[in-house]
């Protein structure tokens, strides 16, 4: 059935795999930056830990609870961005948020590992789940040691 196909696209094996066994799912201690991302609508809450070495991300990890989409997105993000230069990271963040955010209906292919989450764009109510980790990282890079929420 077509509807089931949509669901299978949303919950691809890669997504389920990352959500069941999230990569870099641990606490960094010490961490240069620690920031909490929160989606109060569904209770997703993640803590992101970031260590920066000059202008590179030396280590990036997270802990928390959330739906399959938000966990997979955070897990994929940490794999993609470890050891990357900060200016590249900034670019990736903008590009990911840009492809997911406009209206969620965009068909332009998503580059890189985040392509696995492309199915989310057919579900406007789930876009925030996919972007939570990325927005949290963006705030961490601006050196905000606060809580980021999806609701403002």
């Amino acid at each position: 059935m077509a509807e089931t196909q949509d669901l299978v696209t949303l919950y691809r094996q890669t997504v389920l795999d990352h959500s069941r066994q999230p990569r870099n799912f641990r606490r960094l201690d010490p961490a240069d930056r620690t920031i909490v991302g929160h989606n109060p609508l569904c209770g997703d809450k993640m803590t992101l830990y970031l260590n920066i070495d000059q202008d590179r991300i030396e280590d990036l990890a997270f802990e928390g609870t959330g739906c399959a989409i938000s966990m997979a997105s955070a897990s994929i993000m940490t794999e993609m961005l470890r050891h990357r230069a900060l200016d590249e990271v900034q670019h990736e963040i903008e590009s990911v948020i840009g492809t997911f955010e406009p209206h969620g209906q965009d068909d332009t292919p998503i580059a890189g590992a985040m392509a696995a989450l492309g199915g989310v764009r057919a579900y406007p109510s789930r876009i925030k789940c996919a972007t939570l980790a990325w927005k949290t990282l963006a705030a961490a890079l601006q050196n905000q040691n606060t809580t980021v929420t999806t609701e403002d």
Partner: peptide
Amino acid sequence: VHPHDLGTILDH
């Protein structure tokens, strides 16, 4: 299965 994912699947 997180409740949020359950909600999406049930809606389907």
